[in-house]
Design a protein around this nucleic acid. Structure first.
Length: 174
DNA sequence: CCCTGATTCGC
DNA sequence: GCGAATCAGG
């Protein structure tokens, strides 16, 4: 006589609604309600039309997908040289390798350091730090006229082949 | 690897 | 309608 499984009874749905509106995560709700997986909770939430409850303060949606068919971008039209970016920016791998290889002592002339918003045309665009981090900065020193980098970083960026070969530690690529 | 929610699709 | 599988992203 027992039900095979306590599906979404009124009580359970209301509990779901309440917890969801309280900001509980799907897995938390699933645990509290019991008998259901977080997937079940999410599925139900969507069916109830409760999805996408609170929008982030700024406006960027927390996370989500678009659709199965078009997971990735169709193909960025490659908007030419962004102008704000260096014509030939050093590969990220290279940058990190260098940063890591540089002695903490007299590493880079971390004089300026600017955010992308503070970056000006005459400033050195040498990236410093993890681009995905809010701490990410550009060198910001006075760039050599006509070049995207300051003297210091220009030497690194436009290192002669011969010199590179000798000073191989920086390579990486591939 | 942990977590989040989103979507799909067979049941 | 349901929810596991799968996905994208933090």
């Amino acid at each position: 006589m027992m039900d095979a499984g306590p599906s979404w009874t009124k009580e359970r749905v209301e509990l779901l609604k309440r917890l969801w509106s309280e900001g509980k995560s799907a897995s938390q709700i699933a645990a509290e309600i019991g008998g259901v997986s977080r997937n079940a909770v999410i599925g139900k939430v969507h069916r109830l039309g409760l999805a996408g409850r609170i929008v982030k303060p700024n406006g960027a949606p927390p996370a989500g997908r678009k659709a199965r068919g078009e997971a990735e971008l169709p193909a960025a039209p490659a908007p030419e040289t962004p102008a704000v970016l260096a014509p030939a920016p050093p590969a990220l791998a290279l940058i990190q390798t260098q940063a890591a290889a540089s002695p903490p002592a007299v590493a880079l002339p971390e004089s300026a350091r600017v955010t992308i918003m503070e970056l000006r045309e005459f400033m050195c665009r040498w990236p410093m730090g993890d681009p995905s981090s809010p701490e990410f900065r550009f060198c910001g020193d006075r760039a050599i006229t006509g070049l995207p980098y300051c003297t210091h970083h220009s030497r690194i960026a436009y290192q002669p082949a011969a010199e590179r070969k000798r000073d191989r530690r920086v390579v990486g690529f591939r």
